[in-house]
Design a protein around this nucleic acid. Sequence first.
RNA 1: GCCCGAGUGGUGUAGUGGCCUAUCAUACGACCCUGUCACGGUCGUGACGCGGGUUCAAAUCCCGUCUCGGGCGCCA
Length: 434
Amino acid sequence: MSDRTYAAEVTVGETATVAGWVHEVRDLGGIAFLILRDRTGQLQVKFEKDEMDDDLVEAGTGASRESVVRVTGLVEEEPRAPTGVEVVPETVEVIAEADPELPLDPSGKVDAEIDTRLNNRTLDLRRDEAKAIFEIRAEVLRAVREAFRETDCTEITTPKIVATGTEGGTELFPITYFGEEAFMNQSPQLFKQLIAGSGLERVFEIGPIFRAEEHNTPRHLNEATSIDFEGAFCDAHDAMDVAEAVVSAAYEAVVENCTDQLETLGLDEEIAVPDGDFPRLTYEEAIERVNATGQLDEQLVWGDDLSTEAERALGEDVGEFYFITDWPSEIKPFYIKDHDDEPDVSTGFDLMHPRMELVSGGQREHRYDPLIEGFEQQGLDPEQFAYYTEMFRYGMPPHAGFGLGGERLVMTMLGLENIREAVLFPRDRQRLSP
RNA sequence: GCCCGAGUGGUGUAGUGGCCUAUCAUACGACCCUGUCACGGUCGUGACGCGGGUUCAAAUCCCGUCUCGGGCGCCA
């Protein structure tokens, strides 16, 4: 198939072979048009019935929508054609016929619900809008990788089959590992810390995380893509600098390199690159600001977690990306370091998009004794985490990092209503296939 | 985990007890049409998630079940 030319790249005056899907056949009687679609766009093939072999006409106009066809013919300039050119076919070959009744309409004339779309993802992704999301997602991941490398990070991958969890709260998916109990990893947290303390010092990972929470919302997945950073000799503010740089880089790259996709999604005017300098509110300032909006029935007091309602009120009030820093120690996990002079206040931070939480991070507890105490306070047995805690006995530097939700980044960037739109084959409470 | 809502042709919908042998769009089938670009026109095929109940009468009300969507909690 090396002789194939993309629809958008045919040259007037030359004979070309194009291959793709039958987007539509418009039969006007004496003349018919087949609109062929491939990854680059659409191309019109013309059938003038009086001047062509009946078999050729039948092959072209008789093909059902979404059938795969290969067409060879002369490319002619034609102002009346949608793209200004059209193909006069010499041969038309139906490579793979499609059933006439499609489970969803790839031309986009009739909407389909998210469930129908996900059940028929291949067809769904023949639509430009759906395709654009994943082209943008790929660009986001590329830009994020580049941004991390620019801050001297090494890309790593850590195990997804693990013996213990990371944190108390989140549920784990249990699996059997050669007769032993094991789990799907909910976060690379402990592993990336171990590597921050290794000779690599500054690392990042983009990989799957698994969470067995039975939540049912448009912003949660049971398998998500986590973008993680961990750096030795970093404090919380250094980690926030990296988070800012990475998120900004993703926006810049998409605006720069995905103009067609943004236009397809109707976002070319709407998307704005953040200025890379996000406000950093302390937790205390944040709850005061929420209370000042007057949108909550009950005033928040120090120690409360931010409810979804509070997050929204604050997001609306701030109106841009912002950090919440210095969270109460007791609502942050054990591996987050407290301030030396204020043990009730942690170095934990969240990066918020006005719509939702995007990042969670902090400086880590690198001292052995307080770390062990932290495990015990959270009701965890340090013995079970010996593979982790032991390494803190051999020169663990101060370090900090964060985890960024990859799908949430794409979702908020593109204003998607449902996080499932940002995953090819999402795993949620009810969906295990495809 | 707690709570709410919805399931009608292939797809998306209208329909809150009789007017439903169920609306509309699109798709599908047939025919007509030589410049469509959401092509147009005529005709046609095709559906009330499943099981039980209430009622003279159920797509519509009730119970159960399955499936899906969403809110909260928790989080990325």
